[in-house]
Design a protein around this nucleic acid. Structure first.
Lengths: 144, 144
DNA sequence: TTATATTATTTAGTTAACCAAAATAATTTA
DNA sequence: TAAATTATTTTGGTTAACTAAATAATATAA
């Protein structure tokens, strides 16, 4: 079993790192989008071919909610809807070039911060950290 | 300088871990709060004595917006406003016991997932990972 | 072929989130 | 002491986010 102290400390550092990576990033890349739109766009960026229904399930809202959010994002030229070739009822949501650029701008801010932060580690330590994170990600994915 | 590949991989694993830790957690602890309220409550949990003005600055919104969000959260008995003893204009926002319980319920879900995920690491590896995260957190904090 | 199920959208209504402007109260400065 | 500044709240208005119900199109089952 585990020492709860270790878990607590892990979460504390984890969340601290999250906060520093993210700090101000949304406002820095602000294109007049809301925080919730941002969250949705990020998901669409990662999971390239989400359907309206997928997104509704993912965020725990009704499909009509996602449809309307998609309307607004489409209107802002950040996403587009694409019909599934195999089932004409289904619409995939995909980022436009503009939407991709928005996400990538923010991620480049994160990468810069991380580059600075990791700059104080030796090459061995960096590789080691990466390997440990890879294993943890994999382990969490397996436990589903 | 850095290999961008390492940074990309780091972010990929990092975000994957984030997603797995968080998956469904909000809906699991749902008390009829909105995602934005959740974000605010999390912040109030961590930064115990935020003022309305602090929160407005942190989230990039107007004080009146925060005041109204605080109204709703106060009405739900999740936060309370506390006047500063030194300056009566200032109101601190603090979680009620109910608010704290809500956050802690969610964090316990994270802790459980993390416990499971780390279960595949040796004690040495766990300590090592923790130490590396501590250093990264510290390094990012210093770079401000 | 018809009935049922599925997927997304539209519509109508409500509340949350947001801003601007004004008001209020407290504090600081001149 | 009066004026200026600060911090929050209140008010009014708008839009985003949310639901429920209805609709249309499509796929599946009977």
């Amino acid at each position: 079993m585990f020492d709860n102290e270790l878990i607590d400390q892990f979460l504390t550092h984890w969340q601290s790192i999250n906060r520093h990576l993210r700090k101000g990033a949304l406002t820095e890349a602000d294109e007049g989008i809301t925080r919730l739109q941002w969250i949705l766009l990020r998901h669409v960026y990662r999971v390239e071919m989400s359907t309206i229904g997928d997104l509704a399930e993912k965020f725990g809202v009704r499909p009509s909610t996602v449809s309307q959010m998609a309307d607004r994002l489409e209107k802002s030229d950040l996403i587009r809807r694409i019909s599934d070739t195999h089932d004409a009822r289904i619409k995939f949501v995909s980022l436009t070039a503009k939407g991709q650029a928005l996400i990538q701008n923010v991620e480049s801010i994160w990468a810069k911060r991380l580059t600075d932060g990791l700059g104080e580690f030796s090459a061995d330590e960096q590789e080691n950290l990466l390997k440990l994170l890879e294993r943890l990600a994999s382990s969490l994915a397996d436990s589903k």
